[in-house]
Design a protein around this nucleic acid. Structure first.
Lengths: 226, 226
DNA sequence: CAGCCGGTTTTTGTATCCAAAACCCGGGCT
DNA sequence: AGCCCGGGTTTTGGATACAAAAACCGGCTG
């Protein structure tokens, strides 16, 4: 148990930002909801200042929006923007994958396989939060060999948003078994060093997720009136 | 003169962040330089708090780095990361351009031409800051027809960094007249609706800039020891 | 003489406090 | 009766003040 390496490795605004991010991603804080700084301050038993910094950070990440002197509210994306998020993912992930595949080692493959196993487990266990985290981990592992720090950071920033919608509708999407297989196929194609095949498969995989999610969100919003 | 539309359209941290950003981009604040909050606070005649928020924002943009309790310092990119910045630009800009070209209207073309004229003027006048701003404007105008808000935002974030290095060495690069012509060629190809030709031209244009800049930065760093 | 340890100083991080701007509601005017 | 205007309340934004962590320097000891 050498876990707690650094005594207080994260500053107060950071842990608050992490928690708030999780709350937004999990849907506990709904789209468009206005955020009252003082309420959060009391809830976390700190002053309003760390809260402000945390919100500013989330604002930079695009999860909340600051309006002049009217405070912060959870961002709400249009269907069009959601589609764009996924298109960006395709663009970036395919590029990363293409660069990564020739450089992937046996270690990379075993690591990816392991994460996939964990993912399936949490998927079946209905542990949405864990699945989301593992999903990120899997993708990072897939593209680790590309050794592109900056691109990965940008991708993470974008994936945040896509994850929000995926998790929002994961319960419904669980019926889509093919996703599991597609994940495995990607790894197999990479292992066979079939760069183009793997890339098109990845593009299709994300694209299918996009289409499916778009219809789900559209349906959801239609019923929710809003 | 209907300029000052909104009375106080920008908050204090915002104007400070803008100014600091400009100072970093212009090279007034050198790479790796540590930033003393109190010094800036006195300089801007405000308290340390707006400064902190501004720095946090720049941190989110990647222009400065926060270390635990040791404050902020201007980020310094490795040659490898600089190359990655330009590769990302290629990826994003080509995608935007491809989507934009079929949708570009006469208005778009005239607007682009006009900006190009201004750019040439500031280029010849050696006005580096203005040239940078216009460069941004030109690219935004080129991709405006794509109507991809999010992608453009991401691109802006990345271009910030590339601009930093371009402006750092613009005085040397002025000898490279071909860049002017390339800019015009891009517009002509787009006007002819030659999507693939325009995209490859754009990719080559950015790629050439990248190569040239990389050697300049490498040279600069070699002489500056550091 | 070098390395380590402790006190001092600087610098950051957080809290409390005050001012300014935005919303809400009621009253007056057209 | 409806609309506009003004005071009260709420909420954010900024300043000052305080505590904690880190760097720095000097002295001590092996």
């Amino acid at each position: 148990m050498a876990g707690k390496r650094a005594v207080t490795r994260s500053s107060l605004p950071e842990v608050i930002a992490n928690d708030l991010r999780e709350r937004i991603l999990s849907g506990e804080l709904a789209e468009g909801e206005t955020i009252r700084q003082e309420a959060l301050a009391e809830e976390y038993a700190v002053s309003r200042m760390p809260i402000r910094e945390a919100l500013k950070r989330l604002d930079a990440e695009g999860l909340v929006q600051f309006t002049n002197n009217r405070g912060a509210s959870v961002t709400k994306h249009s269907l069009r923007e959601i589609a764009e998020i996924f298109d960006l993912r395709i663009l970036l992930e395919v590029d990363l994958f293409r660069r990564a595949i020739p450089a992937m080692t046996a270690q990379d493959f075993t690591r990816c396989t392991q994460i996939l196993d964990d993912m399936d487990a949490s998927y079946d266990a209905n542990d949405v939060a864990k699945w989301g985290a593992l999903n990120h981990k899997y993708h990072s592992a897939l593209y680790a060999a590309a050794d592109r720090k900056l691109t990965n950071e940008v991708l993470q920033g974008i994936s945040l948003h896509s994850d929000r919608f995926i998790r929002m509708h994961l319960s419904v999407m669980q019926q889509r078994e093919p996703a599991k297989k597609e994940h495995r196929d990607l790894l197999d194609l990479a292992h066979a060093r079939d760069v183009e095949g793997a890339c098109t498969a990845l593009a299709h995989h994300i694209s299918r997720t996009k289409e499916e999610l778009l219809s789900l969100v559209a349906e959801h919003r239609a019923t929710a009136d809003s």
